[in-house]
């Protein structure tokens, strides 16, 4: 049973404290969506969880293991981040990028086994990205790179997944596929933490939605169990002009 447990975490840059005493517990199968305006500290939160910025105080445990005590490689077998964008590195193919997802397991010298490659091919079929394997990263569109990046996190197969605006460059079909993939992954027992900018998407995909203000959590909603008027009222703290409708024409689901 995968769990993520953040206790009284304080992080910041220089003299600037971004999160003070932030706590969050999540279980396997949950998709927590972080909503918040630009610069409210969402990315900082993900960075702290990945271990890219040191904690001033508090702790992060995944499956009961304290992340602070782990090497970078060991940590990456428990948690990985899908960044906002991956670099446009000419001369690397999609498959090269995906194979890097095996680094925490195989290490700097270990070559991939036939089983590893098979698993990549299988995942590519599930994600519908088989055509990207032999394509150069620099020739992919931003959306294709995003799908590839999501696939790399799936290859890495960590209990906790952090996604930073995973759908920012995706077209409609791919967005729908991304969300259905997230639900599949969650159903397989992952803890998924995603930063999104679209509140409607957040309500559809998130089992919990956190509304973040500057360094504080304004609300922790469970869309499925919360009446629409409460949802609307709460989301309006972040998005004053937002109105929730249940117009069937604009209802799509994943």
């Amino acid at each position: 049973m995968n769990t993520l447990d953040i206790r009284n975490m304080t992080v910041g840059y220089g003299r600037n404290t971004v999160w003070q005493d932030f706590s969050l517990q999540m279980h396997a199968g949950e998709i927590i969506v972080l909503l918040g305006r630009n610069g409210c500290g969402k990315t900082t939160l993900l960075k702290a969880l990945q271990g890219n910025i040191p904690l001033r105080s508090g702790s992060i445990h995944i499956n009961g293991i304290d992340l602070a005590s782990l090497s970078v490689r060991r940590r990456a077998s428990l948690v990985t981040t899908m960044p906002q964008e991956i670099p446009v590195e000419a001369g690397l193919l999609g498959i090269d990028y995906l194979e890097m997802g095996y680094y925490p397991v195989r290490g700097p010298f270990g070559s991939l086994t036939a089983g590893d490659r098979e698993k990549i091919a299988e995942l590519a079929d599930i994600f519908g990205t088989a055509s990207l394997l032999a394509k150069d990263l620099s020739e992919m569109s931003a959306g294709e790179r995003q799908m590839l990046s999501l696939m790399r996190t799936a290859v890495q197969d960590t209990p906790v997944l952090l996604l930073d605006e995973p759908a920012s460059a995706l077209d409609f079909n791919r967005t729908a596929r991304l969300f259905s993939m997230l639900k599949t992954l969650a159903a397989r027992g992952k803890c998924i933490l995603a930063v999104l900018h679209d509140p409607t998407a957040a309500l559809r995909v998130g089992s919990r939605v956190l509304c973040l203000g500057d360094g504080i959590c304004l609300a922790d909603l469970e869309p499925a169990k919360t009446p629409p008027d409460v949802l609307e009222h709460t989301l309006q703290k972040l998005y004053p002009t937002l109105r929730l409708h249940t117009d069937p024409l604009f209802c799509w689901s994943v």
Binding site: Q50, G51, V72, A76, P87, E89, R152
Partner: peptide, 17 residues
């Protein structure tokens, strides 16, 4: 070497210090 060409944040997410 090749992983480093992707930049530090990506490397750490994949477990390379």
């Amino acid at each position: 070497v090749v992983m480093l060409s992707l930049g530090g944040d990506d490397c750490r997410a994949m477990g390379l210090s």
